[in-house]
């Protein structure tokens, strides 16, 4: 026998939750783009900028499932790069954004969308700040130069390996340009 008040409480809770439900799927892509723009504005202190697809190409691998590299231009000048990558989590994938200066030093790293609950701790601003100011020559070591998060081991290792792959690929590109 279930008390009536319990049932009311249950459905009221569910009803209140449903206010948060976004209705159309396209809003996700739009919200990601909005978030990228917001981060660029904050990091480069520039409200007026353009994003252009970069000619730099790197290869995907199992820790970088998809990516894009765009040049951030402020008043026609190259201010930096916006790198978005997709990396695996336990049973899904997540998207992250790295903002580079023109020499590929990280100015900001952030998780744009984390799709599952498990391992979402890597979205922590404090944890992501470990990548800031690092340059392409660096290789991060999980548990050493990148701190572990108990309970989020898979995603921490995935993000670390993903950034390491991006760094080593960009370093190759840089040395090619240098020649």
């Amino acid at each position: 026998m279930l008390r009536t008040t319990n049932i009311i409480f249950f459905f009221l809770g569910f009803f209140l939750l449903s206010f948060g439900l976004p209705l159309n799927e396209n809003s996700l892509a739009k919200r990601i783009e909005k978030k990228i723009n917001k981060e660029i504005t904050a990091v480069f202190s520039a409200a007026d900028f353009t994003l252009e697809t970069s000619s730099i190409q790197i290869e995907s691998n199992q820790f970088l499932l998809a990516h894009s590299i765009r040049e951030i231009k402020v008043e026609g000048q190259l201010a930096g790069y916006a790198f978005t990558g997709t990396a695996p989590s336990k049973t899904d994938s997540f998207d992250y954004l790295i903002l580079f200066d023109p020499t590929f030093t990280i100015k900001k790293a952030t998780v744009l969308v984390y799709r599952e609950d498990y391992g979402g701790e890597i979205s922590s601003k404090r944890w992501l700040s470990q990548f800031v100011k690092k340059q392409t020559g660096v290789s991060f070591i999980y548990g050493d130069t990148i701190s572990a998060i108990s309970g989020a081991t898979i995603s921490v290792q995935s993000m670390t390996a993903s950034v390491n792959h991006v760094f080593s690929s960009l370093k190759d590109v840089q040395s090619t340009i240098g020649q």
Binding site: S93, Q157, T160
Partner: peptide, 23 residues
């Protein structure tokens, strides 16, 4: 190191599964 996890022979099961699913 974690860095060399990216080399193909070092992938373990869950990473392979994730690779198939994700993206």
């Amino acid at each position: 190191t974690v860095d060399s996890l990216v080399s193909a022979q070092q992938i373990n099961g869950y990473q392979r599964i994730l690779n198939n699913l994700s993206g």
